[in-house]
Computed example of a mutant assay.
Amino acid sequence: MVANDRFSDENGVRLNRLGITDPQALAQAETDSSLPRLERLNQMGGIQGGRYDQAHLKQIHQKLFEGVYQWAGETRADREFQGHKPTYVTGFKETMTYAPHKEIEQRLNAIGAQLGKENNLKGLSEEKFTERAAYYLDQYNHTHAFRDGNGRTLQAAFTQLGKEAGYQVEFSRIDPATLNRARDEAMVRQHAPQDAQRNLQPLKVMFQQIVSPAPGAAAEQLRDPNQARQSAPLSPAMAAMDARRELEVTGYRVMDVVANMPGAGNYERGVAVGKGVEATNLNPTAITTHLAQFQQAAEKISKHSGLQGPDAAQDRSDAKRFRTAAEQVQTIA
């Protein structure tokens, strides 16, 4: 059970309209209610006039889940829920942290605006559409707007995005485990920013399995290259979000490395790094307090005699990335 979870009762079961107190029964009721609603929404073409911002995603979430949850359409910000989730997608335990709940509206609107600069992916080849769809799905997933139901909400949003760009996007063609694994691999960002496409490759491959050109002259016109807009430079808001994500993913891995080093005090130093990363994630101005600590942790790893071999290449890379990200966050904070 998660502390301070105002979406759930005292036993950790989500508050619901049906009076269900068994989590398995509630999960089944949610599926039985939301999947037909998802199918109907997709058939209708999604939320007409949606701009892929907070208002758009909240409307989708409400339509999908209002049959079960009284909080359908509320973001995590409405009940001040933060949360994080573990994943073992790399073979090791990783911590997936989401956008600070206070920033959800700002972030969703920034992502929607960036997508709008690309004309909502109209005019792209199938190859390019899957590449850019992977990028944006990862951005929305990291923001993680809702307590539950993010996956189905994004399925509806990207089905609509595809239709409006001349493509059929059919998530039913893959099993949920494939989507979840690709999503998690993008979240943990094993590869450095200069190799960012490698982090998104599993999501792109996933989209390649579910995307196909929609039939008809109208869809063909939507794919006309004259409609395409070049990928615009990241807005300041998007660039800041990216720097902070880099700090998070590398910071928690640096925490683990330092905490597991032999020697007195290293465990405590590692824990302190983790707490500093969490504080900076929630409030980037905290970087002024923690920057020196982060730099020292990165240097400790890069110079450690036991971390110079090929088996520690990821650790050294993360340390270098962590230091760079910390200095970037200081600049933009």
Rank of each mutant, 00 (worst) to 15 (best):
D5H: 01
D5A: 04
F7G: 05
D9H: 10
R14K: 11
R14G: 13
L15G: 13
L18C: 06
D22T: 02
Q24G: 07
E30V: 03
L38Q: 01
L41R: 06
R51T: 14
Y52G: 09
I60C: 05
H61N: 08
K63Q: 13
E66H: 13
W71Y: 11
A72Q: 06
G73E: 09
G73N: 07
D78L: 01
R79A: 04
E80F: 06
E80W: 09
G83E: 10
K93M: 08
L108G: 01
L108C: 00
A110V: 04
Q114H: 07
L115G: 02
G123F: 00
G123T: 01
L137G: 08
D138H: 15
D138W: 15
Q139N: 13
Y140F: 14
T143K: 06
Q155R: 07
A156C: 05
A157S: 03
F158D: 06
K163W: 12
E170P: 09
S172K: 15
R173G: 12
I174E: 08
T178C: 07
R183P: 03
A186D: 09
H191M: 08
A192Y: 08
R198V: 08
N199I: 02
S212N: 01
P215M: 03
A218V: 14
A219C: 10
A219K: 04
E220K: 15
E220F: 14
D224V: 00
A228G: 02
S231W: 10
A232D: 00
P233T: 01
S235Y: 02
S235N: 03
A237V: 09
M238Y: 04
A239K: 05
A240P: 02
R244E: 11
E246N: 13
V249H: 08
R253M: 03
A259R: 02
A259Y: 00
G263E: 03
A264E: 12
A264V: 11
N266A: 09
E268W: 08
V273A: 00
G274C: 04
V277I: 02
H290L: 09
L291N: 10
G306F: 01
D311Y: 09
S317Q: 15
R321P: 08
A326G: 15
A326R: 12
E327S: 13
Q330P: 10
T331K: 15
T331R: 15
A333M: 09
